[in-house]
């Protein structure tokens, strides 16, 4: 079943409770597209779905297979395959300098600290960020911090990149820059966002509502349906 280039993500009958409240009940989903967007209200289950896919959360029932790896049984191999970009770069950057930040992931996959340091510096240099290697991350701007987070994930050569509302604290130029960067990635990308414009060139958009799939398909239709629902619900409000 595991073959190189396997891009399939298969959720079968997944149930998950969050804080004793059921969120997903028997959710099944197949994802094979290269660019997939997740939309929906806050608390609808976008973040939980992403965390199920990278093994941070394990399903209460059902199974999830990501690029040939079953998340429960092969959880330890997931971080090498699945990169995760969080909403707030401040939470993700755990080291005082850029080189240490990149080297950390490499050390977790088994490199010794010398090799990891060399590889991290080379990677930063290859991405025109050589001077971040010894810069204190506190001195970077928000956009630069998120950029560093993305590099710290890419250096681990994942085959799948998950992004959980990665741009909510960024200005428009940074957003545009990152969208261009993400569009150019060879990896499969699944991204949750409230900024619906970013999905224009995606292959597929999934609208999640209360733990269920409300709509699924081409970005234009799904986004239009979601917008209409939002307009309706505001119109109905007193």
């Amino acid at each position: 079943m595991t073959q190189p280039g396997d891009r399939n993500i298969v959720l079968s009958g997944v149930s998950l409770a969050r804080q004793d409240r059921p969120l997903f009940a028997g959710l099944s989903l197949d994802i094979a597209e290269l660019r997939v967007g997740l939309i929906g209200d806050n608390g609808a289950g976008k973040s939980s779905l992403l965390r199920l896919i990278n093994g941070l959360l394990l399903p209460d029932a059902g199974a999830i297979v990501v690029h040939g790896l079953e998340t429960k049984a092969q959880r330890a191999s997931l971080p090498g395959k699945v990169g995760f970009i969080f909403q707030n770069p401040e939470h993700q950057i755990v080291f005082p300098t850029g080189a240490e930040e990149l080297a950390f992931g490499l050390r977790c996959t088994g490199m010794n600290s010398k090799q990891a340091d060399v590889a991290a510096r080379a990677f930063l240099a290859a991405h025109d960020c050589a001077d971040w290697a010894d810069t204190s991350v506190g001195e970077l701007s928000d956009g630069q911090k998120q950029h560093l987070c993305i590099l710290a994930i890419l250096v681990m050569m994942p085959s799948l990149v998950l992004l959980d509302e990665p741009f909510s604290s960024l200005d428009l130029p940074s957003r545009m820059k990152f969208m261009k960067m993400i569009a150019a990635l060879p990896q499969q990308v699944i991204m949750a966002s409230h900024d619906l414009d970013v999905f224009a060139n995606f292959d597929r958009v999934i609208w999640i509502d209360g733990g269920k799939i409300a709509a699924d398909g081409a970005p234009a239709q799904v986004i239009a349906a979601y917008r209409q629902r939002c307009v309706d619900s505001i119109g109905r409000a007193p």
Partner: peptide
């Protein structure tokens, strides 16, 4: 709460799995 986020970010990059190996 920040600590929980940071721990999650560490785990997602394979920190705890490395130790269990």
């Amino acid at each position: 709460r920040l600590a929980d986020h940071v721990a999650e970010a560490l785990d997602s990059r394979g920190f705890s799995t490395k130790r269990s190996k």
